[in-house]
Simulated assay, not measured.
Amino acid sequence: MTHDCVIIGGGPAGLNAALVLGRARKSVVVIDEGRARNRVTRETHGFLTRDSISPSEFRRIAKEQISAYHSVTFAEDTAISITGTDGDFHIKTVQGQTFQSKKVLFAIGMKDLPLDIKGLTDVYGKSAFICPYCDGWELRDQPLVVIVKGADATHMARVLSGWTKKITICTNGSDDLTDAQREELNQHNIPVYDSPIQSIESDNGMVQQVVLKDGISIVCTGIFFRPKLMIGSDLPQALGCEFTETGTVIIDNLGKTNVPGVYSAGDATTHLHQAIIAASMGSLAGVGINNELNEEAWRNI
Protein backbone atom coordinates (compact mmCIF):
# COMPACT_ATOMS: atom_id res chain seq x y z
CA MET A 1 0.00 0.00 0.00
CA THR A 2 1.26 3.47 -0.88
CA HIS A 3 0.31 5.97 1.79
CA ASP A 4 -0.25 9.64 1.10
CA CYS A 5 2.20 10.59 3.83
CA VAL A 6 4.50 9.00 6.38
CA ILE A 7 5.13 11.18 9.43
CA ILE A 8 8.33 10.40 11.28
CA GLY A 9 7.88 11.60 14.86
CA GLY A 10 4.80 11.58 17.08
CA GLY A 11 5.18 14.71 19.20
CA PRO A 12 2.93 17.78 18.98
CA ALA A 13 4.13 18.61 15.44
CA GLY A 14 3.65 15.12 14.04
CA LEU A 15 0.34 14.58 15.81
CA ASN A 16 -1.16 17.87 14.67
CA ALA A 17 -0.08 17.17 11.09
CA ALA A 18 -1.70 13.74 11.35
CA LEU A 19 -4.92 15.35 12.60
CA VAL A 20 -5.03 17.80 9.69
CA LEU A 21 -4.28 15.10 7.12
CA GLY A 22 -6.72 12.65 8.67
CA ARG A 23 -9.48 15.23 8.47
CA ALA A 24 -8.46 15.81 4.85
CA ARG A 25 -9.08 12.08 4.16
CA LYS A 26 -5.44 11.27 3.49
CA SER A 27 -3.85 7.94 4.40
CA VAL A 28 -1.13 8.53 6.97
CA VAL A 29 1.25 6.47 9.09
CA VAL A 30 2.89 8.07 12.13
CA ILE A 31 6.16 6.35 13.08
CA ASP A 32 7.26 7.15 16.61
CA GLU A 33 9.54 5.30 19.01
CA GLY A 34 7.65 6.50 22.09
CA ARG A 35 10.57 8.25 23.80
CA ALA A 36 9.54 11.90 23.82
CA ARG A 37 12.21 14.42 24.79
CA ASN A 38 9.84 16.07 27.28
CA ARG A 39 9.14 12.76 29.05
CA VAL A 40 11.52 13.96 31.81
CA THR A 41 9.10 16.69 32.85
CA ARG A 42 5.89 16.31 34.79
CA GLU A 43 3.80 18.93 33.03
CA THR A 44 3.41 20.71 29.70
CA HIS A 45 2.59 24.41 29.96
CA GLY A 46 1.41 27.23 27.73
CA PHE A 47 -0.83 25.06 25.53
CA LEU A 48 -4.35 26.49 25.45
CA THR A 49 -6.91 24.08 27.03
CA ARG A 50 -4.08 21.71 28.04
CA ASP A 51 -2.05 23.83 30.48
CA SER A 52 -0.29 21.67 33.12
CA ILE A 53 -1.11 18.39 31.39
CA SER A 54 1.52 15.64 31.55
CA PRO A 55 3.32 14.88 28.26
CA SER A 56 2.07 11.29 28.27
CA GLU A 57 -1.55 12.33 28.84
CA PHE A 58 -1.25 14.96 26.10
CA ARG A 59 -0.23 12.27 23.62
CA ARG A 60 -2.87 9.83 24.82
CA ILE A 61 -5.67 12.34 24.27
CA ALA A 62 -4.24 13.37 20.90
CA LYS A 63 -4.08 9.79 19.64
CA GLU A 64 -7.57 9.08 20.96
CA GLN A 65 -8.99 12.02 19.02
CA ILE A 66 -7.00 11.25 15.87
CA SER A 67 -8.27 7.66 15.96
CA ALA A 68 -11.67 8.99 14.82
CA TYR A 69 -10.04 9.42 11.40
CA HIS A 70 -9.50 5.85 10.26
CA SER A 71 -7.05 6.73 7.51
CA VAL A 72 -4.41 7.52 10.17
CA THR A 73 -2.47 4.67 11.80
CA PHE A 74 0.40 4.59 14.30
CA ALA A 75 3.54 2.46 14.35
CA GLU A 76 5.60 2.36 17.56
CA ASP A 77 8.91 1.93 15.80
CA THR A 78 12.00 3.83 14.69
CA ALA A 79 12.64 4.85 11.09
CA ILE A 80 16.25 4.00 10.18
CA SER A 81 16.47 4.59 6.42
CA ILE A 82 14.61 6.32 3.63
CA THR A 83 15.06 6.08 -0.11
CA GLY A 84 13.16 7.17 -3.19
CA THR A 85 11.85 10.42 -4.55
CA ASP A 86 8.71 12.54 -4.51
CA GLY A 87 5.69 10.29 -4.92
CA ASP A 88 7.58 7.08 -4.13
CA PHE A 89 9.45 7.11 -0.81
CA HIS A 90 10.38 3.91 1.03
CA ILE A 91 10.92 4.08 4.79
CA LYS A 92 12.44 1.15 6.68
CA THR A 93 12.27 0.69 10.45
CA VAL A 94 14.16 -1.03 13.25
CA GLN A 95 11.46 -3.70 13.48
CA GLY A 96 11.84 -4.57 9.79
CA GLN A 97 8.76 -2.81 8.48
CA THR A 98 8.78 -0.94 5.18
CA PHE A 99 6.34 1.86 4.41
CA GLN A 100 5.77 3.34 0.97
CA SER A 101 4.58 6.92 0.75
CA LYS A 102 4.02 9.81 -1.63
CA LYS A 103 5.19 12.44 0.88
CA VAL A 104 7.31 12.48 4.02
CA LEU A 105 7.09 14.75 7.06
CA PHE A 106 10.01 14.88 9.48
CA ALA A 107 8.68 15.84 12.92
CA ILE A 108 11.76 14.40 14.59
CA GLY A 109 12.43 17.09 17.18
CA MET A 110 15.74 17.37 19.00
CA LYS A 111 17.59 15.08 21.40
CA ASP A 112 19.48 16.08 24.55
CA LEU A 113 23.16 15.26 24.59
CA PRO A 114 24.42 13.83 27.90
CA LEU A 115 24.39 16.41 30.70
CA ASP A 116 27.97 16.95 31.88
CA ILE A 117 27.27 18.53 35.28
CA LYS A 118 27.04 16.16 38.23
CA GLY A 119 23.50 16.11 39.61
CA LEU A 120 21.84 17.96 36.71
CA THR A 121 20.19 14.81 35.37
CA ASP A 122 18.51 14.28 38.76
CA VAL A 123 16.74 17.66 38.63
CA TYR A 124 16.13 18.06 34.89
CA GLY A 125 12.41 18.39 34.27
CA LYS A 126 11.61 18.57 37.98
CA SER A 127 13.31 21.75 39.21
CA ALA A 128 15.76 22.48 36.36
CA PHE A 129 14.33 23.68 33.07
CA ILE A 130 15.32 25.25 29.76
CA CYS A 131 12.36 27.47 28.83
CA PRO A 132 11.16 30.30 31.11
CA TYR A 133 7.89 30.57 29.18
CA CYS A 134 7.21 26.89 29.88
CA ASP A 135 8.20 26.81 33.55
CA GLY A 136 8.85 30.35 34.82
CA TRP A 137 5.45 30.67 36.49
CA GLU A 138 6.08 27.68 38.76
CA LEU A 139 9.36 29.28 39.95
CA ARG A 140 8.06 32.83 40.38
CA ASP A 141 9.70 34.88 43.16
CA GLN A 142 12.08 32.00 43.96
CA PRO A 143 15.90 32.07 44.07
CA LEU A 144 17.18 30.72 40.75
CA VAL A 145 20.55 29.73 39.36
CA VAL A 146 20.96 30.25 35.62
CA ILE A 147 23.73 28.20 34.00
CA VAL A 148 24.71 30.19 30.91
CA LYS A 149 27.57 32.34 29.66
CA GLY A 150 28.25 35.28 27.36
CA ALA A 151 25.35 37.09 25.72
CA ASP A 152 23.00 34.31 26.84
CA ALA A 153 23.55 35.41 30.44
CA THR A 154 22.21 38.93 29.97
CA HIS A 155 19.41 37.65 27.71
CA MET A 156 18.20 35.05 30.23
CA ALA A 157 18.48 37.52 33.10
CA ARG A 158 16.23 39.98 31.28
CA VAL A 159 13.68 37.31 30.40
CA LEU A 160 13.56 35.78 33.87
CA SER A 161 13.33 39.18 35.59
CA GLY A 162 9.59 39.16 34.93
CA TRP A 163 9.22 36.10 37.14
CA THR A 164 11.82 36.71 39.84
CA LYS A 165 14.52 39.19 40.89
CA LYS A 166 16.49 36.51 42.76
CA ILE A 167 18.82 35.46 39.96
CA THR A 168 22.39 34.16 40.14
CA ILE A 169 24.45 33.46 37.03
CA CYS A 170 26.84 30.48 37.02
CA THR A 171 28.93 30.29 33.88
CA ASN A 172 30.62 26.96 34.76
CA GLY A 173 33.99 28.25 33.59
CA SER A 174 35.03 31.29 31.56
CA ASP A 175 32.09 33.70 31.54
CA ASP A 176 32.65 35.03 27.98
CA LEU A 177 31.08 38.32 29.07
CA THR A 178 32.04 41.74 27.78
CA ASP A 179 32.69 44.55 30.23
CA ALA A 180 29.36 46.11 29.24
CA GLN A 181 27.50 42.86 29.93
CA ARG A 182 29.14 42.49 33.34
CA GLU A 183 28.19 46.04 34.21
CA GLU A 184 24.61 45.46 33.07
CA LEU A 185 24.27 42.43 35.36
CA ASN A 186 25.94 44.30 38.21
CA GLN A 187 23.49 47.20 37.89
CA HIS A 188 20.65 44.73 38.42
CA ASN A 189 22.37 43.12 41.42
CA ILE A 190 22.82 39.80 39.64
CA PRO A 191 25.97 38.03 40.87
CA VAL A 192 28.10 36.08 38.39
CA TYR A 193 30.27 33.10 39.37
CA ASP A 194 32.72 31.67 36.85
CA SER A 195 34.07 28.83 38.97
CA PRO A 196 33.27 25.41 37.45
CA ILE A 197 30.29 23.64 38.97
CA GLN A 198 31.25 20.71 41.18
CA SER A 199 27.75 19.35 41.70
CA ILE A 200 24.06 20.10 42.03
CA GLU A 201 22.57 18.84 45.28
CA SER A 202 18.90 17.92 45.41
CA ASP A 203 16.24 15.95 47.23
CA ASN A 204 13.81 13.86 45.17
CA GLY A 205 14.47 15.98 42.10
CA MET A 206 14.15 19.33 43.86
CA VAL A 207 17.36 21.35 43.77
CA GLN A 208 18.73 22.61 47.07
CA GLN A 209 22.04 24.16 46.14
CA VAL A 210 24.69 24.47 43.45
CA VAL A 211 28.19 23.71 44.73
CA LEU A 212 31.15 25.30 42.94
CA LYS A 213 34.68 23.92 42.82
CA ASP A 214 36.03 26.99 44.66
CA GLY A 215 33.94 26.01 47.69
CA ILE A 216 31.04 28.44 47.23
CA SER A 217 27.52 27.00 47.60
CA ILE A 218 24.54 28.81 46.12
CA VAL A 219 21.18 28.01 47.68
CA CYS A 220 18.34 27.91 45.12
CA THR A 221 15.01 26.24 44.42
CA GLY A 222 15.21 26.26 40.64
CA ILE A 223 17.63 26.19 37.72
CA PHE A 224 17.48 27.28 34.11
CA PHE A 225 20.19 26.15 31.72
CA ARG A 226 21.08 25.98 28.05
CA PRO A 227 21.01 22.33 26.91
CA LYS A 228 23.26 20.75 24.32
CA LEU A 229 21.10 19.36 21.54
CA MET A 230 21.30 17.34 18.36
CA ILE A 231 18.64 16.75 15.76
CA GLY A 232 16.42 13.74 16.46
CA SER A 233 17.39 11.83 13.30
CA ASP A 234 19.97 12.01 10.53
CA LEU A 235 17.41 11.01 7.88
CA PRO A 236 16.72 14.59 6.65
CA GLN A 237 20.43 15.05 5.99
CA ALA A 238 20.60 11.67 4.26
CA LEU A 239 17.84 12.78 1.88
CA GLY A 240 19.64 16.04 1.11
CA CYS A 241 17.63 18.52 3.19
CA GLU A 242 19.34 21.85 3.71
CA PHE A 243 20.17 23.08 7.22
CA THR A 244 20.83 26.44 8.81
CA GLU A 245 24.22 27.17 10.38
CA THR A 246 22.68 26.46 13.78
CA GLY A 247 21.52 22.98 12.78
CA THR A 248 17.80 23.35 12.01
CA VAL A 249 16.09 22.11 8.85
CA ILE A 250 15.33 24.92 6.41
CA ILE A 251 11.63 25.08 5.49
CA ASP A 252 9.16 27.47 3.87
CA ASN A 253 6.00 28.83 5.51
CA LEU A 254 4.20 25.50 5.05
CA GLY A 255 7.04 23.27 6.17
CA LYS A 256 8.40 22.33 2.73
CA THR A 257 12.11 21.59 2.49
CA ASN A 258 14.35 21.92 -0.57
CA VAL A 259 13.77 18.22 -1.35
CA PRO A 260 10.59 17.65 -3.41
CA GLY A 261 7.91 15.83 -1.44
CA VAL A 262 9.72 16.26 1.89
CA TYR A 263 8.42 18.44 4.73
CA SER A 264 9.55 19.14 8.27
CA ALA A 265 7.98 20.77 11.34
CA GLY A 266 8.51 21.34 15.04
CA ASP A 267 11.68 21.60 17.10
CA ALA A 268 13.89 20.31 14.27
CA THR A 269 13.11 23.48 12.33
CA THR A 270 13.16 26.22 15.00
CA HIS A 271 14.86 27.26 18.24
CA LEU A 272 11.47 28.18 19.73
CA HIS A 273 10.91 24.91 21.56
CA GLN A 274 7.35 25.08 22.85
CA ALA A 275 4.70 22.42 22.39
CA ILE A 276 2.13 24.85 21.05
CA ILE A 277 4.58 26.24 18.48
CA ALA A 278 5.48 22.72 17.34
CA ALA A 279 1.79 21.82 17.02
CA SER A 280 1.06 24.93 14.95
CA MET A 281 3.96 24.15 12.63
CA GLY A 282 2.67 20.60 12.26
CA SER A 283 -0.74 21.96 11.33
CA LEU A 284 0.76 24.20 8.64
CA ALA A 285 2.83 21.32 7.27
CA GLY A 286 -0.32 19.20 7.10
CA VAL A 287 -1.99 21.92 5.06
CA GLY A 288 1.01 22.15 2.75
CA ILE A 289 1.14 18.40 2.19
CA ASN A 290 -2.61 18.15 1.61
CA ASN A 291 -2.57 21.02 -0.89
CA GLU A 292 0.28 19.42 -2.81
CA LEU A 293 -1.42 16.03 -2.92
CA ASN A 294 -4.71 17.55 -4.07
CA GLU A 295 -3.02 19.58 -6.80
CA GLU A 296 -1.17 16.51 -8.10
CA ALA A 297 -4.36 14.45 -8.14
CA TRP A 298 -6.20 17.29 -9.89
CA ARG A 299 -3.59 17.53 -12.65
CA ASN A 300 -3.44 13.77 -13.19
CA ILE A 301 -7.13 13.37 -14.03
Rank of each mutant, 00 (worst) to 15 (best):
A17G: 07
V29L: 05
D51E: 11
H70A: 02
S101R: 10
V30E: 03
T49F: 01
E43V: 11
V40S: 04
S56Q: 12
A18M: 07
G84F: 09
Q95K: 02
I61V: 15
R25F: 10
S52R: 09
G34F: 06
D77E: 13
T73H: 05
L48R: 10
I91N: 00
G87K: 00
V29E: 09
G14I: 05
R60G: 05
S101E: 01
T73I: 12
A62M: 06
T85I: 04
K63H: 01
T73D: 04
G46S: 06
R59D: 04
Q100P: 03
R23V: 11
A62P: 07
S101T: 14
A36M: 14
K26E: 13
N38W: 10
T98V: 14
S56M: 15
V20F: 08
G22H: 08
F58R: 06
R39Q: 12
A24I: 08
R50W: 03
I82E: 05
S67K: 08
E43N: 09
A79P: 11
S27E: 15
F47K: 12
F89G: 01
T49I: 06
A17F: 04
A75P: 12
R37M: 05
D86T: 13
I91A: 00
I66Y: 00
T49M: 00
S27C: 01
R50D: 02
H90F: 04
T73C: 14
V40T: 10
R35Q: 12
P12G: 06
